[in-house]
Design a protein around this nucleic acid. Structure first.
Length: 286
DNA sequence: AAATGATCCAACCGCGGGAGG
DNA sequence: TCCTCCCGCGGTTGGATCATT
């Protein structure tokens, strides 16, 4: 017997979200908080599957989402974390404030894996590609005979499954995320409480795990990369204009973070010492 | 300017696992 | 212990957009 669908598909909207749907979802979550995705669409007046609502919120509407302009530091961090964690996009995203697993996954598939290949590195194993494989790559780059769809990078992955050992790690807490307890009002957890509360997992409080902050966020001159970037464009003004006031949050209180970042920079300089980096990364993952 | 190919990314799908009864 | 419900994750798809011919 197959698994029952997550919800009845009959009469439900699919595909791209309309501004009106975005508004409905945002308003609802603002007043009722996240969670209860299954029943949310009905209550919010949306003809959408709960999963779809969750995805839309998580990947697009959330106030702390930072979109586009992935910095070289973030690039580097993604590559290194990928070498350590494999395709655990949510874990990797947890290290990059404002980035979603979907965005990182897409960015990896469309940019980083290509770049690594072009540099002679297997993006799956992070090891140097053998010469025959490199030649194949060059050939492949020249031939355009393949069908477009079949030529997509993520489909053309070799069947060699990478041995990504299962790394059992606790779920990271997204640094800028508003960890809302279910049923908690969104408004009661707006950003202006960030500096007041750092209860870890406490009900209704903001869970800000300072240990979980990626180093790249605190590099000098990159402060503009940090924080809640709300409403990049006018489409998001409904969010920007109301409850999501705080535009930036710099956790200057914890200077150990700066030390962490300094340490990270040092490791970057000694680029060939992967084991050392891994150890360092592991130490902050947990 | 039109046709074709290539790329990007939002959204969907199915599965695994945790929570609770 | 088993079962069901629900959430979250990673893989995949397909439409939109950009680039090239």
């Amino acid at each position: 017997m197959g698994r029952a669908p997550c919800c009845s598909k009959v009469g439900l909207h699919r595909g791209p979200w309309t501004p009106r749907e975005d508004t409905l979802l945002t308003k609802y979550i603002q007043s009722h908080g996240e969670g209860h995705w299954r029943s949310l669409p009905k209550k919010a007046g949306l003809l959408r599957c709960g999963k779809s609502c969750r995805l839309r919120w998580m990947n697009y509407l959330r106030p702390d989402i930072k979109r586009g302009n992935i910095t070289p530091d973030e690039d580097d961090l993604i590559i290194r974390l990928h070498s350590l964690l494999g395709n655990r996009w949510s874990l990797i995203a947890g290290r990059l404030p404002g980035r979603t697993d979907n965005e990182i996954k897409n960015y990896w598939n469309t940019h980083l894996s290509k770049r690594l290949r072009s540099q002679g590195t297997d993006p799956d194993t992070h090891k140097k590609l053998s010469k025959p494989m490199l030649q194949d790559l060059k050939k492949g780059a020249k031939t355009k005979s393949n069908n477009n769809k079949n030529n997509k990078q993520h489909k053309s992955k070799p069947n060699i499954q990478t041995e990504n050992p299962k790394v059992h790690t606790p779920k990271p807490t997204r640094f800028t995320s508003l960890s809302l307890a279910r049923n908690d009002s969104f408004e009661s957890n707006t950003c202006n409480t960030v500096s007041q509360s750092s209860s870890h997992g406490g009900e209704g409080g903001l869970a800000i795990d300072v240990v979980d902050v990626p180093w790249s966020s605190f590099k000098d001159g990159h402060n503009d990369e940090v924080g809640f970037l709300v409403g990049e464009d006018e489409e998001h003004d409904l969010v920007n204009g109301s409850d999501f006031e705080c535009q930036s949050y710099l956790p200057t209180a914890d200077h150990s973070l700066e030390k962490l970042y300094e340490e990270y920079l040092q490791l970057l300089k000694t680029d060939d010492d992967q084991a050392q980096f891994d150890f360092f990364a592991e130490s902050i993952v947990i």
